[in-house]
Computed example of a mutant assay.
Amino acid sequence: MLLAGLLTSGQIFAQKISKAELQVNGLTCSMCSKATETSLKSLGFIETIRPDLEKNIFVLTFKKDQQVNLDQIRDKVQDAGFSIGQLSATINFNQTFIDSSGLAQTGNTVFRFTNAKSKTLDGPVAAKVLDKDFISSPAFKKNVAQLKLDSYQSGRGTVKGRETRIVHLSI
């Protein structure tokens, strides 16, 4: 259960994420956990990592005012030989409006909320990332059938005339 977020033309998640919980699938021993932790520690935006071996989660806190890149977190977990089962995060919004289609943009970050429309977010919000490789494969397939969004399958879409990374969230 970890982070929530987005990327734009590159792979930068520019929203202010204070902490996240990352559930990792496939961990069978403390050596597996250590390999994942070591891989994650190489990311410069992570302040601390606290593993919970009983639940196969890592509680991550992030350096203040650093950009958090969700795709890099996913890549580091996969590089260690595992997959993300769930990623939840606390995202600090500042008067961010979600339009009637569920889209919200803050800086270069674009989110599509699957369960929130026409509202303003302000302050810390707990969110789950629903994109491919951030949830289980069966959950992703179920969401594809239910959401019927082109951007959900690819993680990309056109926003204000630009091809952009869109991170899909549930709050």
Rank of each mutant, 00 (worst) to 15 (best):
M1G: 07
M1C: 10
A4Q: 06
G5C: 02
G5K: 02
L6G: 10
T8Q: 15
F13I: 12
A14P: 13
K19N: 11
K19Y: 05
A20T: 01
L22R: 04
L22I: 03
V24H: 08
N25Q: 09
L27Q: 04
S30P: 15
C32A: 09
E37W: 12
S39A: 06
L43P: 07
G44Q: 15
F45H: 07
R50L: 12
D52I: 11
E54C: 08
K55H: 04
L60K: 02
T61H: 10
T61F: 14
K63L: 04
K64I: 00
Q66S: 04
V68S: 09
N69K: 15
L70Y: 03
D75E: 09
D75Y: 10
K76L: 03
Q78W: 03
D79W: 11
D79T: 15
A80L: 05
F82L: 06
F82V: 00
S83L: 03
G85Y: 03
S88N: 08
A89C: 06
N92T: 06
N92D: 04
F93Q: 02
N94H: 15
Q95W: 04
F97S: 11
F97I: 12
F97V: 10
F97Q: 13
F97C: 09
F97L: 13
I98A: 00
D99P: 04
D99H: 15
S101I: 14
L103D: 02
A104S: 11
A104G: 03
A104P: 02
G107T: 10
V110K: 02
V110T: 04
F111V: 06
F111I: 01
A116M: 15
S118V: 06
S118A: 13
S118E: 14
K119W: 09
P124K: 07
V125T: 05
K128L: 07
V129L: 15
V129G: 13
L130C: 12
K132L: 02
D133T: 01
F134S: 03
S136I: 06
S137Q: 08
P138N: 11
A139D: 12
A145E: 11
Q146A: 09
Q146I: 03
Q146H: 05
K148N: 02
Q153Y: 14
Q153F: 09
S154H: 07
S154Q: 07
G155Y: 01
T158P: 05
V159N: 08
V159D: 08
K160M: 14
G161S: 07
R162E: 15
T164S: 06
T164I: 07
I166Y: 00
H168L: 00
L169N: 00
S170E: 05
I171K: 01
